[in-house]
Design a protein around this nucleic acid. Structure first.
Lengths: 197, 197, 197, 197
DNA sequence: GATGAATGAGTGTTCATTCAT
DNA sequence: CATGAATGAACACTCATTCAT
């Protein structure tokens, strides 16, 4: 029987992590177009050739990095998910969690925004991404069923609950104020007013 | 005596227009990173060297194209602006106009989205852009004053009125349904519910 | 009968002069390789196309500029030439004049040095250049005849009389001291000691 | 067991040598300005991109080539240096060695001349170059101390001993005659007459 | 005579990727 | 597994030169 302690991470893992962080960091610092394989390699402290051991090509590196971010985010949002609460509270919990994830990982978020607005985005399997957010979807649908949430197209609902988060947590858009706990609460009120029956 | 009709556009204008359209088209088709100067030139039917007569460098070409799009959009949104209507109607008019502009010029919109998520975005004068949207800002502030709109931070308001439009009109995000007039009306209802007092 | 006053120089002349000075200045500032036609034109305050009215091509511009410098220098050196003096004094006069010309027109000299060490140099008619320095040659030959100067190959003589001037007046080589009148006199003593019988 | 003989030069060395020779050859053939990176690469039989493995940029390639030539020359001149001889003989030995080096490596010399008259020259560390010629400097200073050589500024002395070599060995300047051993001896006599007390 | 617009050919440099070690 | 060396292809950009006006 083999027991892996936290400290027993293989060298591979360490390199892969360094590569992930280097990719995110560089794309955020100098942008998508200027982030070349060799610059990423240098940032990660490895050889450009090594990247091709872990990834088929540059595209694969970028897509993998995006998916990894989305997985992280999905996992983080679903922590301590309690569906015994009233629907408004469940959504509020999720909402705040997304907000805090995005605020605490601005680099990940910014990478994801750049990525999803680039043509690389068409290469990812949408369903895999959506999978990470399945519980939220379920709650909303339940709210509609129970006539707590407006009975309108699902995409319209998400556009008003979740999409404003992107704007509010984007320092590029909201340069003028910080999102205090109070502001977050206020913002959720608007989101809920938009979708509630 | 020589009379120049409007139709006697100089060669300059024709080339400049071709360049603008080629830039937008190519960035939408193959993305920001892959849109090289020579590819843009070929698309526009001119020599790469000619681009440097009209623009100092690639950056200038991309930034100019973005600003031009924003100016177009601002102009288009402010057409037939009638501020004698009730505030809800004024905002509804603006809202629908933005929506229809974005829907009718998906290429321009997509370019603007890619651009504003790239590091080039930091190069534009934010105030110039905001200028194009000044009337809208005034209406919202008036609504707040008259206690028709919630008295919360301005950025929060816009995140809930305007930002969802970006999501709803983005074919990448809303792949599953088309925005009919009815859907647009429904969506505005949500926007209004979010911000109204 | 037409009388040209100094002030009556035609526009052409003014442009040609500006072009000459711009060429020299730019080549000295940024070097031969980096001095493009358009940069020279901008420096001269004219259009690149205008250069092609006065010169067949870039090569012709550079060669003409060199020849003009050499003509200037030859003319300047021969001013107040008095061949009734003793040979040593004649040569001393010439020597000092060359030195002072080179010191007073470092830009011209530097251009000439760069030019004569470039492959463009093979394009100039050597005899035309030598013509400007004929009187000096005559004096030296007379000195040899009169057994005042060593009877050795002419090129060896000039290598020791005139070539050191290039070194001494080149600020690149002589960075450590300025050529005072006294130093000039000292230097000529060495030159004369080298060639005198 | 693998034994590496001296003759087993690594690929590196071969390429680097080819690059050095190609740079010198091309600059001599078509001049400094026209010697582009791609032409040099083609002459050396390597890819332009490969040059950037060995050199940071074009400038670095040209400067390195110059320094290498100067190092070669310095080394060659100091071979069999015997400072037990009378000062005149030591200087004569050095003088002849410089002359023969320059005559036997006209390409290296011509490159150095072009280089030192170009703006690139300001990029080299003068002290490094001077280091290669330290012994000569010492001898001259000793000669001055012993009142064998004129007590004048050092730069003036070198201008008359060494600079004429540049002229005499430059086929561009001395087209009319070859430097026989006798001529070399004669020329050194002039150099010595110039500087001797 | 003078020029701004235009461009094909070329510049120096970096790219994503491969491969022998 | 990991890499430094290598490169063809592409990059952003400038060149010398022409030509219609």
């Amino acid at each position: 029987m083999i027991i892996y302690f936290r400290s027993m991470r293989t060298k591979d893992d360490i390199k892969q992590d360094a590569l992930f962080e280097a990719t995110v960091k560089l794309v955020n610092e100098i942008g998508f177009a200027a982030s070349s394989v060799s610059k990423i390699a240098k940032e990660a402290g490895i050889s450009p050739a090594t990247i091709y051991i872990y990834h088929k090509n540059k595209e694969d590196l970028l897509v993998s990095t995006y998916i990894e971010i989305k997985r992280n985010m999905g996992k983080s949002v679903q922590e301590n998910f309690d569906d015994s609460l009233p629907i408004r509270d469940i959504i509020r919990n999720i909402w705040v969690k997304i907000f805090s994830y995005v605020s605490n990982h601005p680099a990940y978020f910014q990478y994801a925004e750049q990525f999803s607005n680039s043509p690389y985005n068409s290469l990812v399997n949408k369903q895999e991404i959506e999978g990470y957010f399945a519980p939220m979807i379920q709650v909303i649908l339940k709210g509609v069923e129970q006539k707590i949430i407006k009975n309108v197209n699902f995409d319209i609902l998400t556009a008003f609950i979740f999409y404003p988060i992107m704007a509010l947590s984007n320092p590029r858009i909201c340069q003028n104020f910080e999102m205090s706990d109070e502001n977050i609460e206020t913002a959720f009120t608007l989101a809920w007013d938009a979708i509630k029956f």
